[in-house]
Amino acid sequence: MTTTTLPPTEKTRPKSAPPSVSDRARAERRLGWMLAGPAFVIMLLVTAYPILQAVYESLFSYRLTDPANRAFNGLGNYVVVLTDPIWWQSIGVTLLITVVTVAVELVLGFALAMVMAKALQSLRPILRAAILIPYAVITVVSAFAWQFAFDINTGFVNSWFAWLPGIAETTDWFGGWGTSILVICLAEIWKTTPFISLLLLAGLAQVPEVLQEAAKVDGASWWQRLWRVTVPNMKAAIMVALLFRTLDAFRVFDSIFIMTAGANGTESVSFLAYRQTIARLEIGLGSAVSVLLFVAVVIIAFGFIKGFRVDLSQARGDK
């Protein structure tokens, strides 16, 4: 790669800087902490505190309506959760929804990002707004909209698509596992594809035009330019988009809550946590499920960052 593609920070970094930290760097670091410090403290208050509280509660057998019988239970709640088949089934459902939605969203989101990037200057703001609208819709509202669309009484899907094999006027979408998951995935994809495409658009904008031109001069086809120039140059942006969306998708709740309420084996891990904590009022057991969900999310994030070497602070198109 030529030096012209290097980002400004790389360019300005003095190559001959001594390895030891200079006074100026130290002062800058201190200033950085002072600037970020208050936000850091607030983050600790609103995230670390509830997480620690959940870890603590998860060690107790504790029912909200019966605080007198709260008792220390050690890791008993975790044993109950991890030995229950419904936990593993929920993990399976959650993983399936995550993989399917993220994969489809990545392809669709990429296509939409290309459209947005290549659109005429005058059309671009309108197009961008139109593509972003689903992301602005509240998830519960979008879930209701999709449920109404597919509902056997209120929906239009059955009558519009009755000509397709497998769809009839009497198709009950929320009556079976497969069709329920399909509608849930569709709703999720519709809703969050704009998010991925927005992140990818930022990555696309960073692919240096000179590289494209050079490839064109060398006679590369559109497809070759896409695979050999565009995609490798925005790998970091793709990974960041994937990471954010995967973490988000793994916590899927709203659509399932509205559409099936967990019927037909469509419960996700978040839904299981809700059921134990809010419906059963078993704070201990519910906290254990939540902590395990948190651990799963941490593992995903860690896996992405270490496994794919995603640098969150440098989501740009250089390598």
Binding site: F174, G175, A263
Partner: peptide, 15 residues
């Protein structure tokens, strides 16, 4: 009915 496993009171009335 075709949607018995998802039929609640409101859907029943509609039917």
């Amino acid at each position: 009915g075709p949607a018995f496993s998802t039929a609640g009171e409101d859907a029943n009335v509609t039917d």
